[in-house]
Design a binder for these strands. Structure first.
Length: 572
RNA sequence: GGACCAUUAGCUCAGCUGGAUAGAGCGCUGCCCUCCGAAGGCAGAGGCCAGAGGUUCGAAUCCUCUAUGGUCCGCCA
């Protein structure tokens, strides 16, 4: 039940009636008519712009349309008053019964806030997709949380969601991994080894080297790369993917599918994807202009195989084959997205780090070309995370020596705090993550404030249970109670907006606002005992008061669920 | 040279499909509370929404240009 959507339907009904009566001309489009919460509560509970939007096409004055509409809407049961304001706004005040109905609905309907706007369409959300060369670090953590919450949000709004991880196991970096593991392997055999530039020196490979020794003994000692490279590469990437899966699990992230880049090679799948582009006349041999401004030192003009991405919105055409005939990184990526399209997804979402921003246009061009514009690709970029502790930059790493890992963060503050905090900024804004503030118990810590609201409600409910007071029909008398109910009424609308924009951070901000509004009511109970939820000497009144916190808890639980955060029963 | 993202209160940031007098937390100022369902409450001051044009009934929001900051720019992934 979305109260705003319902009221919009009522407004549209009234407008149609006005057309039928000749008060409005035929053939008007109502698409731009909105019903929204007014910015200023003094303007009432809802406002519609109908009169202003329709004035011009109807050739009438906005205030005249609004006045007529007001009379019709005032006839509705749930509208207490309708008042023309400003240039032609129609401000609606709702009957008090509407708010108790909202609370009742939440208590009865487990699915409150869910919607079917996705209509069961299939969406693929690709996120994390870190190279399988080491543990996940902080940057991956943000992408993991963002992608996961977005996937939850889309599921909540009726999409059929697949969570997917693209394993970059086909490029040169996994060869580097293999060589690094080989060094650890030699080390496990008691040799002194030196890590040259271009190898991964992290401690996390020691165990992999030791495990390799365990498995193959000394078979690779003293042999050349041509002997061991391939098998160590497989061994090492498997080990790294196990590590990464564990990292993700510690954060509560579970993928539906891991897609291997390597599986695209030698199987004709890259060739098939490029053939599909070729069939559309989008592949050609040619040379690119050097980048303007600063000419690279070693620039020389070379002929390459190019994808005409400019035909689909890119700025320059992009090479898919290097001048030596091998694939660029872009080629398997095209094949991967082609595979997603062929799997029948209706929409694709890629979550990348902001440093891949330059890659967005060519990827969109490829998907547009391969799907004939039928499958939309949205690329969400996550900006950097800066870590702090008590105002000091935080660079500790127990595991890698040079970067803070996902595990470092989760060990420090826990998965729930990590997840919520990562969503307290828009994805494309840089995020300051302060370990001390993230676990601070104060009002300026949104994680705590939201959890605190939930814990308070649970505390009240335990008290009510002890007194054998059941939750009854909601009674909302005080304005502070109605404020909370009004906030609850916004939830379904908020969810729809967040899902449509692919912006899960909106959920976190909403939960903070809901918690604030609840805490305000609670605080009034400190001064005015009649506003407390449990009235020890009045079971009837208590039953009526307990409905509102129960509804708040339900929405908090629901919202935290989208973020992947477990609500706390009590604070310690 | 070009592309993308950003620019909103002293600070850190929200701001919906374009909607009315642009919000929150911190900090600041003042008052209240020490009650318990601890981890305070209430109120106030504080804004040329980077700048300039444009679109329209209406722009922080859309378009163009400019400034500043960040990221990226064939043969890395």
């Amino acid at each position: 039940m979305n109260l705003f959507a319902q009221m919009r339907d009522d407004v549209l009904d009234a407008l149609r009636a006005m057309v039928a009566d000749g008060a409005l001309p035929e053939g008007l489009g109502f698409d731009n008519v909105t019903v929204e919460p007014p910015r200023d509560a003094a303007h009432g509970d809802m406002a519609t712009n109908a009169a202003m939007v329709l004035a011009k096409p109807a050739g009438l004055k906005p205030r005249d349309i609004a006045a007529d509409l007001a009379v019709r809407l005032e006839g509705l049961e749930r509208v207490a008053s309708a008042e023309v304001a400003g240039p032609g706004f129609l401000n609606l005040r709702l009957d008090a019964s509407v708010w108790t109905q909202v609370v009742e609905t939440i208590l009865q309907d487990q699915a409150y806030g869910r919607s079917d706007t996705g209509q069961g369409a299939r969406v693929n959300v690709e996120y994390v997709s870190a190279n399988p060369t080491g543990p996940l670090h902080v940057g991956h953590t943000r992408g993991a949380v963002f992608g996961d919450a977005l996937a939850n949000l889309l599921d909540f709004t009726g999409w059929d969601v697949t969570r997917e991880y693209y394993i970059n196991d086909g490029g040169a970096q996994v060869d580097v991994l293999a060589r690094s593991v080989y060094l650890r392997y030699l080390e496990a055999h008691g040799q002194d080894v030196a890590f040259a530039d271009g190898t991964y020196p992290g401690d996390y490979l020691k165990k992999v080297g030791a495990d390799l020794k365990e498995q193959v003994g000394d078979r690779f000692v003293g042999t050349g790369e041509e002997v061991w490279l391939e098998s160590i590469r497989d061994f090492a990437t498997d080990a790294m993917m196990d590590l990464i899966r564990e990292d993700l699990a510690s954060l509560g992230v579970e993928m539906d599918n891991f897609f291997s880049e390597k599986s695209l090679y030698g199987t004709g799948r890259i060739e098939a994807a490029l053939q599909a582009l070729d069939d559309k006349g989008l592949i050609y041999r040619g040379t690119l202009e050097p980048p303007k401004g600063k000419l690279p030192e070693d620039w020389e003009e070379r002929e390459q195989t190019l994808f005409r991405s400019t035909a689909h919105g890119d700025d320059v055409d992009r090479p898919v084959k290097k001048s030596d005939g091998s694939w660029t990184y872009f080629a398997p990526d095209i094949a991967y997205h082609y595979d997603k399209i062929e799997r029948g997804f209706d929409a694709l979402i890629d979550v990348f780090g902001a440093d891949h921003g330059g890659y967005v246009k060519r990827m969109k061009a490829a998907v547009s070309a391969l799907s004939d514009g039928k499958v939309p690709l949205d690329v969400k970029l996550c900006q950097l995370v800066k870590l702090w502790k008590n105002g000091e930059p935080f660079t500790m790493s127990k595991r890698s020596g040079n970067f803070v890992t996902l595990r470092d963060v989760v060990d420090e503050v826990g998965a729930d705090v990590t997840r919520f905090t990562m969503l307290t900024r828009k994805n494309d804004a840089p995020l300051d993550f302060d370990f001390a503030k993230a676990v601070e118990q104060s009002k300026d810590n949104p994680v705590f404030y939201v959890q605190y609201a939930h814990a308070r409600i649970r505390s009240v409910q335990r008290k009510a249970d002890a007194l054998e007071i059941a939750t009854g029909v909601p009674q909302l008398t005080d304005p502070a109670e109605v404020d909370v109910a009004r906030k609850l009424a916004e939830w379904p609308r908020l969810v729809e907006i967040a899902a449509r924009n692919h912006e899960p951070h909106r959920i976190a901000f909403y939960l903070y606002e809901l918690a604030s509004s609840f805490h305000a009511l609670w605080n009034r109970g400190n001064d005015d005992a009649s506003l407390r939820f449990v009235q020890e000497d009045d079971v009837i009144a208590s039953a009526g008061k307990l409905a509102l916190p129960a509804a708040v808890a339900a929405v908090l639980t629901s919202g935290l669920g989208i973020l992947g955060v477990t609500p706390l029963e009590e604070l310690r």
